[in-house]
Design a protein around this nucleic acid. Sequence first.
DNA 1: CTCTTGTTTCGACATACGTCTATGTTGACG
DNA 2: CGTCAACATAGACGTATGTCGAAACAAGAG
Lengths: 127, 127
Amino acid sequence: MSKQELVVLGQDESGCCPPLLAAPLDEEQAVELAKVFKALGDPVRLRLLSMIASREGGEICVCDLTPAFDLSQPTISHHLKLLRQAGLIDCERRGTWVYYWLLPGTVDKLAGVLTRPGQPAASEGSP
Amino acid sequence: MSKQELVVLGQDESGCCPPLLAAPLDEEQAVELAKVFKALGDPVRLRLLSMIASREGGEICVCDLTPAFDLSQPTISHHLKLLRQAGLIDCERRGTWVYYWLLPGTVDKLAGVLTRPGQPAASEGSP
DNA sequence: CTCTTGTTTCGACATACGTCTATGTTGACG
DNA sequence: CGTCAACATAGACGTATGTCGAAACAAGAG
């Protein structure tokens, strides 16, 4: 089940991040990046990702996600599939329920790509 | 001309950034964020943004953007319009030519939203 | 095995999106 | 004023996307 992500971002260990804002992107990089941004370009998927990522234990059951939306269960499942194919989340069946969790690599990659040179990290407000 | 952005992100000065990955997003925030991510969800627009942002002087003429793509001039103009409506760039006519530049606020906002708590800034690789 | 519950897959459909050609608009220059 | 070049807008067309209901699949309980 967790075998079908498109491995959309090279997850390169080569230091840090391809500069989006510091050098022109070549077409191939742009295509790969656009897939992930497109996955984030829907309010339902953003909220799903947010709910998954902000879960204390790191995992959340579909049955806890669905009631938060005014949409049919198949539609939620569809959006979760797109997030999974974008490499943003993964899931595992555990008995009757399916649990989803965040794949931090892809999100970190995006954050890096969008960080302008010289811009400090977005440190959360808890010193 | 530079008057029609949707002012899509509140550009709030309230410290830093709404946590996308630390707390569930409410619907309104999700809708606003999704507009910007959707604008980034196209390879042509990503490359356009990248070319604009990485320009040394901070500005670039449309006549320098168009030839880099295998698309018609109106198509490029259309994509630039979407980036502008998303609050990512702005433009100004200067004689015959139109110049575009990056609006750093929106990009910074996205980077902040995608940065996980505890994740350091993406420092560029030039020590 | 059968029944029930949770989840995904399958078609179908309306809408949105990316692209084009054709046409406007704006400014520079004779 | 007329003409040309640089961009923008308008309309059209094919494809992709978001949504649903129905059906299939998986796993536990009788």
